[in-house]
Design a binder for these strands. Structure first.
Lengths: 356, 356
DNA sequence: TTCAATTTGTTCGTATGTATC
DNA sequence: GGATACATACGAACAAATTGA
């Protein structure tokens, strides 16, 4: 260790032990030179180190003062421990639960949560990602925006992933080969169809969202269940929608029900659609579940609130959030990626499905 | 300007103009000494400045290299434009809407949102506040935790307010004299009671939360309406609860209704309680609104979902969030505090109240 | 107001040690 | 091993700012 470093260390200790008070001068260069019995230059080097680290401040003609800039500089460095969370929506449906799960878990680890939402729009997604990069978050939890469509921000994602750990929730861009924590949506579709089929329903209507992968996978599961149980359906028996065309569902469904009266079971993309549909169908004279059996998915609070409690499939929600937080913190602190998680849905039988 | 500073400045310009490429050496100290015709010591001082600022990196025995650490250091300084948001809850009731309002508005201004929740617990509130201080957020939006009780964190709040702008939403600690953006809760209580009284109800039950100020103010409004319209009530006609004793409400209410059958109107602390109560009362054989008129408040989604659509009073929710975001950004950027906001509730008549 | 003492700022010179290529 | 380049250390002098008598 060099002399000037020894002296710097000793001075630093004295400052930290409050032997020199804040905003008071330390001995002059000349005195220190005598105290430590070295050249003035060596003293100046030692002082330069501490000025640099924010422990001292020099004033020409006056003296060298004890400073506490180092405290704020420490904080600057310590301002890590922040996880960025990007979701499509914030306040709707199951998202608040997921975010709560993340927040609760991050708090346990002493991490903070930087939040942004994309409103399911690629432009906003880009802004969010750039903000997160600028910010220097230590990890990212992302719910993909319009996951089934081509994503113009893939290059950004790749760049981000090289720099910090990232995990996707609810879905994962197929091109990206990223880590994920998701519900097994194929199984969701399969089990929903299977349940209705086992209850004797042979003519099913499937309503699904096609701008995200959840919808695509649930449809895949639906189709595979139909094949397995030899249930036939027409292309018209699958009603699709996107974020932008959500409002057209009710009309399409009512029309299809008129065209094909033997339809007795409807599988909805989620409880939100199911809940809406139950209300609208009831107003249009259908009895649920006597005339039509309806399945939601996600076991959201909506499924227990309405006039008819919905038969549905579970979504881990808060658990998914806390697992995602867990994943990201462990990956950061242990340095290697944790395993992916795929949750199995569980059937929740309530009042919207009836044996035929 | 000192020689070494001139030299440092000139070198810096050359680096910024890419005359020295990244990760290549600049001329050695000896050569620079000849170029600028100064002593080696002066050269060393100039170089020390740039090393410190992140433009250069020295490698013993090899040379002095052009570095770009300064870029990341610039970002560090630029890491402002973040607003901390502390609420009691994240995922429940009207909070998601408020947070969405904040997030949407902050995004427009290019600010980020750092989120934390207290679960209505003072210990966690303290942790949140300290995290925010450490973090160096530029402003704070706080929903008070247990606002009607003594708050052990007041000193922290005072310290914070001295450093950065802060605005409270939904309620404000009475001791703190802070800026606020709130619903006029006295008026909420008053209007709820007034509406039932005008509908002919003379015997009212009031259910309110007493660990936050919203509940206290709403009760104040209730009392003042009763006095104004000469409606009498007994102490037992006010049922109070706290975060911890929420579950006891139903039992207490059912008992009180038995004790005093002439009770015909119930005012609930909010839609959450009202919605729960409607369900429980229905199960216990009461007809809503034939036997009992029930008022919620906040006009939450719950008021439109259940079996009975609730008559309720508006809460600005998302508007409150965006106004809070607006307040904090303007206060930061214009330097002086914006005016407080107090929203007037508006009556929303639905199906849970009937003329007597 | 002035002036002298004190303190840091800047520059020059020199020598030796140590890591890299 | 030798040349090169940075690291550490000591000595000396003058400049510029501050402070207090």
């Amino acid at each position: 260790m060099a002399k000037y470093q020894d002296i710097a260390e000793e001075l630093k200790q004295k400052i930290l032990r409050n032997e020199y008070e804040r905003n008071t001068t330390i001995p002059s260069e000349f005195k220190l030179q005598e105290i430590y019995n070295v050249s003035r230059h060596t003293i100046r080097q030692a002082i330069a180190v501490l000025v640099n680290e924010g422990y001292l401040r020099k004033e020409k003609g006056s003296g060298t003062y004890v400073d506490d800039r180092y405290k704020t500089e420490k904080m600057m460095q310590n301002r890590n421990k922040t996880i960025g969370v990007i979701t499509t929506y914030l306040s709707d449906y199951i998202f608040p639960s997921i975010i709560r799960g993340i927040e609760n878990e991050l708090r346990k680890y002493g991490y903070s949560l930087l939040l942004a939402s994309t409103n399911n729009d690629h432009e906003l997604e880009k802004e969010c990602l750039e903000k997160m990069i600028d910010y220097g978050v230590d990890g990212l939890i992302v719910e993909p925006t319009k996951s089934s469509q081509y994503n113009p921000n893939l290059a950004l994602y790749v760049r981000l992933r090289e720099q910090i750990p990232m995990v996707m929730i609810n879905a994962v861009y197929e091109e990206l080969n990223a880590s994920y924590i998701c519900l097994d949506d194929v199984k969701v579709g399969f089990m929903a169809a299977e349940h209705l089929i086992r209850k004797g329903h042979q003519h099913l209507l499937f309503i699904t969202k096609i701008d995200d992968l959840q919808g695509k996978y649930r449809m895949k599961g639906f189709i595979s269940a139909c094949e397995r149980y030899n249930v036939h359906f027409l292309p018209e028996d699958v009603i699709t929608f996107t974020t932008e065309t959500r409002k057209t569902i009710i009309g399409k469904t009512l029309q299809r029900l008129k065209e094909k009266p033997e339809l007795s079971g409807i599988i909805c993309y989620n409880d939100q659609i199911a809940s809406l549909l139950v209300d609208e169908l009831t107003e249009n004279g259908y009895q649920i579940p006597e005339d039509l059996s309806i399945m939601g998915t996600d076991d959201s609070s909506l499924s227990q609130i309405g006039n008819k409690k919905l038969t549905t499939l579970t979504h881990p929600k808060e658990k998914l959030g806390s697992d995602a937080a867990d994943w990201i913190v462990k990956t950061i602190e242990e340095g290697n990626a944790q395993p992916n998680i795929l949750y199995e849905p569980v059937l929740v039988e309530r009042d919207s499905v009836k044996e035929k």
